[in-house]
């Protein structure tokens, strides 16, 4: 059987879910017998080829996140929300009840201890922030959700092995966590 092609990315996340993926430890050797990694921080491939599975860590907080998410949706047969931030916005979404300009002003302009002349970064290469952080299912269709902050290595392993074997992923009580 040809290996399944997997892409991964971290949007408005902390890479904790990717670290947790590495927490499957020596099972990674079994995993790479079954899958090959395409676009991913693990391979440094910058754009998706057509893939079987896309793992998305993090919600969307800026315009680039939206573009990346849409590229993944376009190229992946199965798209997975990996971790709390992708599932419900998570910690970054806790800025959602604050006004974006007020936050930027405070962080880059009025906070004590800033260098003289500090201002809100406006380099055109910086992606524009969205007014609110959103979970990814508000932007594209998501096929599976794996909650957890992060989901444990065991949870990711169970999820992926179920999915690769063609079973509906099922975590059970011990692996099911929102925290």
């Amino acid at each position: 059987m040809a290996k399944l092609r997997v892409a991964t990315t971290s949007l408005a996340g902390c890479f904790g879910c990717h670290m947790s993926l590495l927490d499957i430890d020596e099972r990674f050797l079994q995993l790479i017998e079954l899958v090959e990694f395409n676009r991913s921080p693990l391979t440094d491939i910058k754009h998706c080829d057509p893939c079987d599975i896309g793992l998305i860590e993090g919600g969307v907080c800026n315009a680039e996140n939206v573009h990346v998410l849409r590229e993944f949706r376009k190229n992946c047969k199965v798209l997975v929300a990996l971790g709390a931030c992708a599932v419900n916005g998570g910690l970054p979404a806790q800025r959602n009840h604050l006004d974006l300009h007020t936050i930027l002003e405070e962080v880059y302009h009025t906070a004590p201890g800033l260098a003289a002349g500090s201002q809100i970064p406006d380099d055109p290469e910086l992606p524009l922030l969205l007014n609110k952080v959103h979970p990814i299912h508000e932007v594209v269709k998501i096929d599976y959700f794996l909650p957890g902050c992060p989901p444990s290595g065991d949870a990711i392993w169970k999820f992926l092995t179920d999915l690769i074997a063609g079973r509906t992923p099922h975590l059970g009580h011990q692996l099911m966590h929102y925290d």
Binding site: A81, V87, N88, G89, A93, N96, H97, K132, H134, P135, H137, E138, I142, Y144, F145, L146, P147
Partner: peptide, 12 residues
């Protein structure tokens, strides 16, 4: 596994 609906993010 998911909240499924769009989030309200109320200010409380």
């Amino acid at each position: 596994m998911t909240p499924h609906f769009d989030m309200f993010y109320p200010d409380r």
